[in-house]
């Protein structure tokens, strides 16, 4: 019982922290979850984290919240989902309630702008650090198909501006097609 309460408290605190420091879009949640759930507590593997990230991205809504919910689910079931989501929503709610009262002042403030400009470079480095490790993990599978999917999805989204939904749907169809093809070959 005490163990359970401790786990819930940890989950709440960690999500509160993560959410309060997720500047520059929700993607920063991925390295944060990696740090606390995978490295520190070893609740799940890095591969499992990639599955969660893939599912969060394939679902509608905010990727950060979806990922927090899945991590919470993995650790403490549906109670974990509820705790994680509440903790993830609280910081924005609190901060924006204060900021909205004097937001013109906030937007034009030089100190705020300087801190944020510095953080931008930090977020960029954190993302690259994560992406390098994750690419290495996929390369380890030694599948040309899976490795090629990374640059293809990147180019489709970043250069051709294809909506993420279509890229993910195309990927699913490709995988199903490929499995069908392999099966046929094995049967023959």
């Amino acid at each position: 019982m005490k163990q359970r309460a401790k786990l819930y408290l940890w989950l709440f605190a960690v999500n509160l922290f993560i959410s309060a420091f997720t500047f520059g879009g929700g993607y920063l949640v991925v390295p944060m979850v990696r740090r606390y759930f995978v490295w520190k507590k070893q609740y799940f593997s890095e591969d499992e984290l990639m599955s969660m990230a893939a599912v969060s991205q394939s679902s509608p809504g905010a990727i950060a919240i979806n990922l927090s919910a899945l991590a919470g689910y993995h650790v403490a079931g549906f109670t974990g989902v509820l705790i994680s989501c509440i903790a993830a929503i609280l910081p924005p709610l609190f901060i924006l309630s204060i900021v909205s009262a004097f937001y013109e002042m906030f937007i034009t403030n030089a100190i705020v702008a300087a801190v944020l400009k510095g953080m931008e470079a930090g977020v960029a480095a954190l993302m690259i650090d994560l992406v390098v490790d994750m690419c290495a993990m996929i390369m380890k599978e030694q599948s040309i198909f899976l490795s090629a999917m990374i640059p293809l999805a990147f180019l489709g989204n970043f250069v051709l501006h294809i909506n993420a939904v279509y890229i993910l749907i195309a990927c699913c169809l490709f995988c199903i097609g490929k499995t069908l093809w392999n099966r046929k070959k094995e049967d023959a």
Partner: peptide, 9 residues
Amino acid sequence: GLKSASLGL
């Protein structure tokens, strides 16, 4: 496959 594609994204 989704893991790879979502990494690309």
